[in-house]
Design a protein around this nucleic acid. Sequence first.
DNA 1: ATATTAAGCTAATCCGAATTAGCCAAGGGA
DNA 2: TCCCTTGGCTAATTCGGATTAGCTTAATAT
Lengths: 205, 205
Amino acid sequence: MNTKKRILDAALTLFSEKGYANVFVAEIAEAVGIKAPSLYKHYKSKREIFNAILDEMKKSYDNQASSLNMNGNDSITDAKIFSKISQDDLVKMGIGLFMYFLNDDYAQKFRKMLTIEQFSNKELAELFSKQYYDAPISYQSAMFAMLTANCVLTDNNPDVMALQFYAPIFMILTICDREPHRETELTALLEKHIRQFSKIYSRGE
Amino acid sequence: MNTKKRILDAALTLFSEKGYANVFVAEIAEAVGIKAPSLYKHYKSKREIFNAILDEMKKSYDNQASSLNMNGNDSITDAKIFSKISQDDLVKMGIGLFMYFLNDDYAQKFRKMLTIEQFSNKELAELFSKQYYDAPISYQSAMFAMLTANCVLTDNNPDVMALQFYAPIFMILTICDREPHRETELTALLEKHIRQFSKIYSRGE
DNA sequence: ATATTAAGCTAATCCGAATTAGCCAAGGGA
DNA sequence: TCCCTTGGCTAATTCGGATTAGCTTAATAT
């Protein structure tokens, strides 16, 4: 019944592993447990499956964006929660962000598929940059600006701080996507990064 | 005469734009100025062209690695050159590193092709990580360790410093690959990053 | 000078993978 | 009960793109 949905899931999994062009319609069908021609009862073409995944992706974008807020609070306009952020809070937030993105099945597959397909058209390129650069940076920049205003951090350009905080996290994430066996090693490095970042930028009392 | 080489160049260009699977042998041939069947006088198959590119890549790896050293000196074991590095030197080095990687035709195409193909087999995954993570990090880590030993920088884990220095550079690089029109904006950000990095880690006199 | 090789071409061939045709069973509403 | 839709199947069909066959010319070497 939700075959239509199951097709999308199977296709996303395969596309994220091998890229659109290297996946056969028959493989998708097999993963779903049906034969290739039956797929066409649900989607007009292979391309339409891809587009449906993209649509889903764009819809879920807002979800993902808001889930960047690891505190369960809905908005960073509530400055109070940041006024006394500790180093451990920051570590928790960074690792949480990382672990969510790394292990969430959907998030991981989206990311890998976008990575593979990012050069194939402009829309995908923009989506990639927005999702994995602009959005997180803008969120974190706002956060650091607030922490700076509240005298938790020393006074520095918050965009740059966001970049320096986030880029290492994202880089480690992409290495784990590529070479999952390095996860342990890299998670340890990630924690060191966040602690050092926090130490460096904290205002001494 | 050097048709063989010209085929590799044309193929690399196309693979880096669209990925192996989306490039037709006929396109490669056309880019070279011959017909598809003539390609087979030079390479046994499309796959063999790809492999030849890879081989070249691996050979040129050492070149690229050593060109990371932007100073024209051959080795970082010569600690003296780093003993009195200034902020401007670091900016120059960072921007130089960035500009080289961004604008060098060969380097850019390799990077884009590897990005697209990184999940298609283990060898490519390893090559990617080595070339764009392990090698630069290890080089820069050594550099920062030296600067720390020479009391130019405050005492911190050099691996983490290298990560914090390099990850933003690489992230900006990949955005420029994807959306070249953002180059100006992002180069400015890059410079701010390096200056702030330098300021933060410098030992006050 | 002639034989041989290199490197190009056009015209097949081949093959694999997407898609279509057309049949069938199950369910559910008139 | 009977029709009609849904979603599956097998067996074509199609088609595009990689590869091969076989010819031709130009250079090179003996």
